[in-house]
Nucleic acid binder design. Structure first.
Lengths: 167, 167
DNA sequence: TATTGTTATACTCTATAACTATA
DNA sequence: TATAGTTATAGAGTATAACAATA
């Protein structure tokens, strides 16, 4: 079924393992902080943050799904939770009646503001503490092309987003 | 509760976002490959790989839990699944009757071998493709100290592993 | 016919607490 | 008393498929 690369070289293996471990630990810490300070899951935080970044505080469901890598139903579920908490509001889009526009409420903005400092604190203290400013730059410089590459690379067995749902 | 860093500088922010996105996409791709080629979750793969790395093909439950960051019950659950599939075997440890030693079976080793090439292929093609060898070295060099720092930093509100369960 | 989003449903995973047994 | 592990249980999250409505 395969006869190509039997292994990664030691340097690659180290980088790969470190990457997995670092993000795993970081994620864990961040999730805990978000849960404690705002009763938010990481996904919910990402959705709020994304809306907060938007000039209008709004996004269509589809646009949100694109960013947070999700099945449509999963997004509906999460946005439903956020709406139930009064953090966002859903309304039919003006231009396209099929679409739904999600908008951050004042409460949502407040929660975001309440949660952000602690979030930053965790990321700073855990991820950036052992790195100099130049090293952070170097890290960013290395990750950017990888990100671009991944974005451009469709998940091999992707049955296409056009045919099926959205996952 | 906090009055310090209100924000990360742009460079840090970029590095942080890229890190999250890159590992999220990588994880997604890897999980899909593992599911398709061996019907394994990522956690299960990690457990098998960890056992495969051991000279004896064995580990105590506790040692496994330490690496894969888990609650004890979660580990019991996953190892239970693997045992049900005949990929590992559990037996009381010889030296400490309280401990359980988990050992990779031949079937487990075979599955690991069957799944690994595709795994390596995904990681190579997605994570390492856009990086030169030197860049991979640089990446590894940046992540290593971060990993060490995180390992040494107890999760702030960690009620200690001694008092409670293990999470 | 294609796209947007929701619903129903089933399943996987994870965590907490209570419990057993050995050190 | 502390440690190793299991069990019961409950809850969060995710994905699939069927569905409704608009373009």
């Amino acid at each position: 079924m395969s006869d190509a690369p039997p292994s990664l070289d030691p340097v690659q293996l180290g980088a790969y393992f470190d990457l997995i471990e670092v993000t795993s630990l970081l994620r864990h810490a961040v999730e805990q902080q978000l849960r404690e300070s705002g009763d938010l899951s990481y996904v919910q935080f990402q959705l709020l943050a994304r809306l907060g970044d938007s000039p209008t505080g709004s996004h269509r469901m589809t646009d949100l799904a694109d960013g947070v890598v999700y099945s449509r139903s999963g997004l509906t579920y999460q946005v439903g939770l956020l709406e139930k908490e009064g953090l966002v509001v859903r309304a039919p889009s003006p231009d396209d009646e099929r679409s739904v526009t999600v908008t951050l409420t004042d409460a949502g903005r407040e929660l975001l503001a309440k949660v952000l400092p602690g979030h930053v604190e965790v990321v700073s203290g855990l991820l950036f503490a052992p790195l100099s400013h130049d090293e952070v730059s170097a890290l960013a410089g290395l990750l950017a092309p990888v990100r671009e590459h991944m974005r451009a690379t469709p998940p091999r067995s992707a049955a296409s987003r056009r045919r099926k749902g959205g996952a």
